[in-house]
Nucleic acid binder design. Structure first.
Lengths: 238, 238
DNA sequence: CGGAGAATTGACAAGCATCAATCGAGGTGG
DNA sequence: CCACCTCGATTGATGCTTGTCAATTCTCCG
């Protein structure tokens, strides 16, 4: 991992064919795809391989992105090599829209993914011209901050078991599947760096859950939730 | 603490008399006061006593605020009473502008403070009409997210000593004083809940720093940094 | 089939939380 | 003006969760 940001293929594309990830706010059902529709003309479809870096912390923020397919991790890394995964992005999520002049985190592809790239200039223009678009970006950013605060609680006050339970339920929820089948594109190392614990602890807790019969591991990154109630009990409130 | 949100005095006011907290971005020196100037006419000056709640998590977000004087803590609290301090606000900071329909944290006065209250409706209107204002709110929000990610690194990868050193230097920096005199309006409990550690640990680490001669405690909430280099050494990189 | 990276499992140590008691400061009332 | 009272801060002793180190096993691909 950590190769140069080498894009495999770049070809123009619209958002028309994207699968529509509707946001789940109660007040108004604002479709992400429709909200950033005006940007479609300015977009370039690019593909990124697993482990590749889309941009690095400190880079000049010249582009905004929308993840069309795949998963991305937002990472802050320290001088000694340790890394903190700030967020996982899934298909439909926006990337870089809430950034100032420089990216304050790196973005890396968890697995092969394709995304739309928009020039920041075009985005800035649209932000002042299209109030619906601007409102949507504000909402998305607010939700990001909300998630960050949520995870502070997790990191400060929750045990290893609670964190893993939270993570599994959260991943199950974001997939929207009710049968409890979870696909974990990221490695255990990523999970550990996301939840603020050692990779061995992740492994151990998952092992406990397997023994308890709460989950079944179908393959390395495919897990099925068998006893959702048990997981929710471990997770606790929030 | 945790009394009803009872405002002591509410009288109309403008921002003219506010001391101007200029933001320290490199690209453009955007004054917060000037940026939200258009809101001045809609503002109401209110006073809140130490420990009082300005609004609670889950409340309908009907107002935005600007802290004129004093300190505020943003708090998320759990069912068992444990609390996570997400952020400390100082004079000049905005509050509630990045919120969706509901506040996703509570805001409590660390000490007696006065703040300007603006109706959310007016803010929303201004957000679509005044592009400078909108841009400023975006910047502030982005900076908030940036700080949240920064603290995730702190909470996940830093020791107690590193956290306290970071906190002291951060508080010294935000005051803008070079002589190293820090005023800590919040209690040790607040600090502990902010840094994700036990109150006793806060006390112990501060005691170590005192013995090392890195700091001098002039009073309970007034600390002087004597050996800034030592603190920065402990803190490590960012 | 074989190799390399990732995941698992075990043993051990340590940092920090927890419990408990004492100390200190600030504010009130006599 | 001083004593007292209460809340917060400090200091000490102890245990536990979790990180670290190390070895083995597993899985995915070529």
């Amino acid at each position: 991992m950590d190769e140069k940001p080498n894009m495999l293929e770049t070809l123009p594309g619209t958002l028309a064919s994207e699968h529509d990830t509707t946001s789940w706010t109660k007040d108004a059902f604002v479709s992400t795809a429709r909200a950033i529709d005006p940007l479609a003309g300015h977009g370039l479809r690019i593909a990124v391989r697993r482990g590749q870096e889309i941009f690095a912390e400190g880079d000049a923020a010249e582009s905004c992105y929308r993840l069309a397919d795949g998963s991305i991790r937002l990472v802050k890394l320290m001088a000694d090599g340790r890394r903190q995964v700030c967020e996982f992005l899934k298909a439909g999520d926006l990337l870089g829209f809430e950034t100032d002049d420089e990216y304050y985190f790196s973005a890396e592809a968890v697995n092969d993914c394709t995304l739309m790239r928009y020039p920041r200039r075009a985005v800035e223009t649209l932000l002042v011209e299209d109030k619906l678009f601007a409102r949507h970006v504000r909402k998305v950013t607010a939700r990001g901050l909300q998630g960050a605060y949520q995870r502070m609680v997790l990191l400060c006050h929750k045990s290893a078991q609670e964190r893993i339970a939270w993570f599994l339920l959260s991943m199950a929820g974001r997939a929207g599947l009710e049968n409890g089948d979870i696909h974990l594109p990221m490695t255990r190392t990523d999970i550990a760096n996301y939840l603020g614990m050692a990779i061995e602890t992740v492994s151990r807790v998952l092992g406990q859950f397997k023994q308890n019969g709460a989950i079944i591991q179908k393959s390395l990154n495919r897990i099925q939730i068998v006893d959702r109630d048990a997981l929710e009990l471990v997770r606790g409130e929030v």
